[in-house]
């Protein structure tokens, strides 16, 4: 494998030295392009109190291509599907090489605070979020308690 680009080294160093509040991202011991991520559920959101595990992978042509990010902890959210895939514009067509791992993770945290049921990935969740928001929020809290709090 080719040497790690300076860009990835620099980003990793900065993530360790000045971590983003509520987010931890640690590179895997055997693969410097694979990050173990933990995002804490934002305050005043149904995910508050939960710790959500994610995986983040920097593809070969990063930063020209977006990192691949996926939730590992189950989460009840209209923009995150059963496989943990995330519907977020900056991970797709709005990706810019000037964005970084930290900005991506901050955007994901913001998505937890502001779910967008009009651009859904998990249709059943989005549907309930639209027709009966209080029930959807109850479900999200329940899932947070059940899947994101035991460790």
């Amino acid at each position: 494998m080719a040497a790690l680009p300076r860009r990835i080294i620099k980003e990793t160093q900065r993530l360790m030295q000045e971590p983003v509040p509520g987010i931890s991202a640690v590179p895997d011991d055997s693969n410097a392009r694979y990050f173990h991520v933990i995002v804490t559920g934002p305050e005043d959101s149904p995910f508050e109190g939960g710790l959500f595990k994610l995986e983040l992978f920097l593809p070969e042509d990063y930063p020209m291509s977006a990192p691949k990010v996926r939730f590992i902890t189950k989460i009840y959210h209209p923009n995150i599907d059963r496989l943990g895939r995330i519907c977020l514009d900056i991970l797709k067509d709005k990706w810019s090489p000037a964005l970084q791992i930290r900005t991506v993770l901050l955007s994901i945290q913001a998505l937890l605070s502001a779910p967008n049921p009009d651009d859904p990935l998990a249709n059943d969740v989005a549907e309930l979020w639209k027709v009966n928001e209080s029930e959807a929020i109850r479900n999200a809290k329940e899932w947070t308690r059940r899947y994101a709090m035991d460790n």
């Binding site: 680009p5 300076r6 860009r7 620099k10 930063p63 090489p97």
Partner: peptide
């Protein structure tokens, strides 16, 4: 604002 003869590229940080 460019100062000096060298600059750091925001993408490759070189």
């Amino acid at each position: 604002i460019i100062m000096g003869r060298y600059m750091c590229c925001p993408v490759c940080v070189m």
